[in-house]
Amino acid sequence: MSGRERPVAGAEAALDAALARWARGGPGEAAGDAAALARIRAHGAALAAAPVPASPSPRWWRRGAVAGLAALAAAGLVALLLPAPAPVSAPPAAGEPGASFELLYTSSEEEEMLL
């Protein structure tokens, strides 16, 4: 072993033997094990009576990705086919080049005071 002190071989053998007895004791050695085993089996029977858990398909994410791409492509196609919306600004009135600007801009009182 790797400790600083070298263990006595007989003590190691005694520890090995004790650990083997401890580790290889079968079920049913402790009081209450039979009842515990009965409860565990009942739990197993309850699980077995439940519907079998569905196996998720390994390709579910691929199907989802394909559906998502198809939706994006459809949205893009619609955007291409539809006419572009008109710009949000008032068309300039004939003969008045500053009309459009005047519709969008209203000077504040402070600016008027500075002027």
């Binding site: 079968g26 079920p27 085993l37 089996r41 699980l47 077995a48």
Partner: peptide, 8 residues
Amino acid sequence: LVAQLAGP
């Protein structure tokens, strides 16, 4: 299977 596994 539960009967096999439970004890150990």
